[in-house]
């Protein structure tokens, strides 16, 4: 999935505005939580800003599939099961899950999303 410079610039602007970070910190590889310091309430702000900027509607479940991270069908011993991982891939084809797959602890899911993932998600919604 190709991400144009225009899409990246708009996502970058939304993140700079919502998180108070510098433009050069918002690299494609930066993780939202670990690198950019996003907290849960910031995600709502980011969603609002992306919706306005791209004229799209974003459901919170798109970015945080709560059921997969909580239901026993998909989670065992604090880790997402193989079935859960398959479901995640289906629902989040725009996300790079390769690192998460190695040790799919639910508690690490929050720090999964990168700026690139977010850009690809936006592209999927705009398309």
């Amino acid at each position: 999935m190709q991400v144009s410079e225009d899409v990246f610039a708009k996502v970058q602007s939304a993140l700079v505005d919502a998180l108070g970070v510098d433009e050069d910190e918002v690299t494609p590889q930066a993780t939202m939580v670990g690198d950019l310091g996003a907290e849960s309430i910031d995600f709502l702000d980011i969603v609002f800003k992306l919706e306005k900027s791209f004229g799209i509607k974003i459901a919170t479940e798109d970015l945080f599939p709560k059921d997969i991270l909580t239901e026993s069908t998909y989670v065992q011993d604090g880790k997402v099961t193989a079935t859960g991982l398959e479901e995640l891939k289906k629902r989040m084809p725009w996300a790079d899950l390769s690192n998460f797959e190695k040790n799919p602890r639910v508690q690490d899911f929050g720090d999964l999303l990168t700026v690139s993932d977010l850009c690809r998600y936006v592209v999927s919604k705009v398309a």
Binding site: I41, L44, D45, V47, F48, E51, K52, T60
Partner: peptide
């Protein structure tokens, strides 16, 4: 500006 089930701006 925006209102969703989780919050509003």
């Amino acid at each position: 500006q925006n209102k969703q089930p989780a919050g509003a701006l």
